[in-house]
Design a protein around this nucleic acid. Structure first.
Length: 744
DNA sequence: ACGGCACGGGG
DNA sequence: GTGTACGTGCCGT
């Protein structure tokens, strides 16, 4: 048979792997017995003890030659075969304990069962192949590859929810699959849905919040009504455990996954990569990371890149350490200071600058890893102590003889992404598909650097993180020097970007620098003007709060309220309106002339708030809560919102978001789902938010918050009396921003 | 004054 | 099954 692996998962009870093969037409279920194994190694002193223990426990094992770590020579290791899938982890723990002082090192233990199976046959999901025996007709890194015509249908439900937020107890009114709606009595709806799914036979069911609510809800209603609801190509769901976890500097909530059998459930809310790269992005990563589609849709890009590294390591014949146990090297105090510094940062002077070029390195950090061969096994390798590849600032080097794992994995991703972007730009036939794939790949590149510094990453090593940073700083310094030699003046720089003023040829500069550092530097664009905003607390230049107007007519905005996820739509709209007027200006002079008009625009918005005429929808504040209600020590708005929900029997897990309206009553807030139209929003609170949003953009030009409040007070003719300004540290000397105009 | 809480960034 | 570290700003105590 010929087809694509759409779905692949273990059947623990039968010690087998179930595969759903999508063919040109139709789908085939294949079940295959599978025998997983893991490896153990002990030094000479403990080797006999290890083998004796295995014999004593009657554990099936063989001795094989394998490499324990990237690039190391092969040596004798024991390959251990647990009797059942479910015995693997307990047995591995036993073998670990037998070596009492960590004498036994274990490998290939914590690996996904699906990936084990696929790698053992050298096959991958969503790649065309032949069965019996398994044989690839495709390779994972191809730019163009054949795919079946996948059918994805959207599923949603209408629920009678008297409390505002639907619960498991609420009645189902109707369900909609794509364009078909089923209503009637609940059991009829559920049976109708089952029949509809069977008839339309989608490969993918797409939901928004299917994991968190819809699927468990439908299942609960089906049980209550005695309906056998089947949404997969066979009955039953594969559930996991939901969790709040700490990542990316914040708490994220991940609800219990609800996976179907033989059919892929993609929950848009649980699928970060889907939101970025769509279905084709997920398919691309599933192929390269060797992870089934349905699993891939719920994973982070970090896990995807990590699985690609594992896949490559296995391909090289290296075993995968159970736990990372590469200790950090010794560092002196002075060394620590040097190595712990982050990326390159220039110090911008707040104000407006005319005619500015922005140049950015494309995928700077991943490119550094590739160009300078940075990988846990190549950094400080023992084979090249005299390597000429020295890391700047640090007494590190990288291997000259062998390319490292991280570069081997990254190089094709970088090249592939560029190729896809070029194809999309050239207006190729499947332009959207190429764009989607390129977007998914981009996230691999963004996360791979952070992963090198992550203590639990399998192929992470903190020294890699330091080395990449050190190269990054050096490269930006070199770029700055070259820019200055070519007559540019450096306004600002962060990590991989520079903002330059001057009359030189920016394209020629990019070519020059790219050639010098072997990493492509691109012209992001020329600004008619760009505003760098001051830091409110000390008046110095903020590092990443700016907005500007490109000559090609687009605006670029970073760090202000408009970009923050907790900002109400109304304040965004206000800032967009201000920006819209400012972007009509072609130079700093006309920008300054337009300011009075811009202030009027802002005051118009504040007026709407004070009149009570703003729509409550546009005033919703959104906060990602960081802890359970009981753990809040400050009685802030998040606390008030959580309390309100709690009183009605609803709880949020850390990482979930709450949306609420700030009100004047004793409750302070009204959670969005409970809004009944009787609410009166807190006018002074919102007016203040609006004034802040306005002054944030134009404070360097004489319109700080106090000034905006003054102007508003006069305009409102006494209606506006709020003067709750907190004392703030003002910039020394009250330095006003310079108006910087380019030399002619 | 100070601590608690939440957000950003890359395209 | 999970990127770190940190700056920034507002708000409550």
């Amino acid at each position: 048979m010929r087809g694509w692996i759409l779905d692949c998962y273990p059947d623990e009870e039968n010690d087998s792997i179930v595969i759903w093969l999508r063919q040109g037409k139709g789908t085939k279920r294949i079940e295959e017995k599978y025998r997983p194994s893991f490896y153990a190694w002990a030094d000479e002193a403990h080797w006999d003890h290890l083998l004796a223990s295995l014999d004593m426990g009657n554990v099936e094992h063989t001795v094989e030659k394998k490499s324990l770590w990237l690039g190391e020579a092969e040596r004798d290791v024991v390959r251990i075969f647990p009797r059942h899938f479910s015995d693997l982890m307990p047995l591995a723990k036993s073998v670990d304990r037998w070596g009492r002082y960590r004498d036994h090192r274990l490998f290939n233990v914590d690996m996904r069962m699906d990936m084990r199976f696929l790698l053992s046959h050298g096959i991958f999901p969503m790649g065309l192949l032949e069965t019996d025996p398994w044989k690839n007709l495709d390779s994972p890194f191809r730019i163009d590859y054949p795919l079946p015509d996948l059918k994805m249908l959207h599923l949603e439900a209408d629920i009678d929810a008297p409390q505002g937020i639907p619960t498991m107890q609420d009645r189902l009114r109707s369900v909609t699959l794509d364009k078909d709606t089923v209503d009637g009595a609940e059991d009829e709806i559920l049976e109708g849905l089952r029949e509809l799914v069977r008839q339309r036979d989608p490969d993918i069911i797409h939901t928004e919040g299917g994991d968190g609510f819809l699927l468990p809800y439908l299942q609960a209603r089906a049980e209550l009504n005695g309906v056998d609801l089947v949404l997969g190509r066979e009955g039953g769901m594969r559930k996991g455990r939901g969790k709040s976890y700490f990542t990316y500097g914040r708490i994220v909530h991940k609800p219990t996954p609800h996976r179907l059998k033989g059919r892929v459930h993609i929950d848009a809310n649980a699928a970060f990569i889907f939101s970025e790269g769509g279905l084709h992005g997920i398919i691309d990563l599933a192929r390269m990371g060797c992870i089934p589609l349905q699993e891939m849709s719920r994973l982070s890009p970090g896990t995807a890149i990590s699985s690609m590294q594992m896949t490559e390591a296995m391909r090289q014949g290296t075993l995968i350490m159970w736990k990372k146990n590469l200790p950090e090297g010794f560092k002196t105090a002075a060394h620590l200071v040097a190595s712990d510094r982050g990326g390159f940062i220039y110090d911008p002077k707040p104000g407006i600058y005319g005619h500015v070029a922005e140049v950015d390195f494309a995928s700077l950090y991943p490119s550094i890893m590739v160009v300078h061969n940075i990988s846990p096994e190549t950094l400080l390798c023992s084979c090249c102590p005299d390597s000429r590849r020295r890391v700047p600032e640090l007494n590190y080097w990288t291997c000259e003889k062998r390319e490292g794992l991280l570069p081997i994995v990254l190089r094709p991703i970088i090249q592939r992404r560029l190729a896809l972007k070029r194809l999309a730009k050239a207006g190729a036939r499947h332009k959207d598909v190429y764009t989607a794939r390129a977007k998914a790949l981009k996230w691999l590149l963004v996360t791979c650097f952070g992963y090198t510094g992550y203590k639990n990453a399998r192929f992470g090593r903190i020294e890699c993180h330091e080395a990449i940073n050190a190269y990054g700083r050096e490269i930006l310094l070199q770029a700055s020097e070259i820019a200055e030699r070519r007559g540019f003046h450096i306004i600002h720089g962060i990590v991989d970007s520079l903002w330059l003023q001057g009359n030189g040829d920016a394209n020629a500069l990019c070519r020059d620098i790219s050639a010098r550092v072997s990493i492509p530097l691109m012209l992001e664009g020329i600004y008619d003007w760009i505003v760098f905003l001051p830091n409110v607390t000390n008046g110095a230049g903020a590092l990443n709060r700016y907005y500007g107007s490109f000559t090609k007519g687009e605006a670029k905005v970073r760090g202000i309220a408009l970009r923050r996820s907790d900002t109400p739509e109304f304040m965004r709209e206000l800032q967009r309106a201000m920006l819209g007027r400012l972007c009509q200006c072609k130079d700093p002079e006309s920008f300054v002339e337009a300011l009075p008009q811009v202030v009027d625009i802002a005051l118009g918005y504040v007026g709407i708030i004070l009149d009570g005429a703003a729509k409550t929808d546009d005033l919703m504040l959104t906060k990602r809560v960081s802890r359970p209600l009981a753990e809040y020590r400050q009685k802030n708005e998040s606390y008030a919102a959580l309390t309100q929900m709690h009183e009605l029997g609803f709880e949020l897990a850390p990482g979930q978001k709450v949306r609420y309206l700030a009100c004047e009553d004793a409750d302070r807030v009204k959670v969005e789902d409970f809004i009944d139209g009787s609410e009166v929003y807190d006018r002074s609170r919102y007016a203040d938010l609006a004034l802040r949003a306005a002054s944030e953009m134009i404070s360097p030009f004489g319109y700080d918050l106090d000034e905006m409040r003054n102007i508003m007070g006069k305009a409102a003719g006494g209606l506006w009396t709020k003067a709750s300004s907190r004392p703030r540290f003002r910039a020394a000397g009250g330095e006003q921003a310079a108006l910087c105009v380019p030399p002619i």
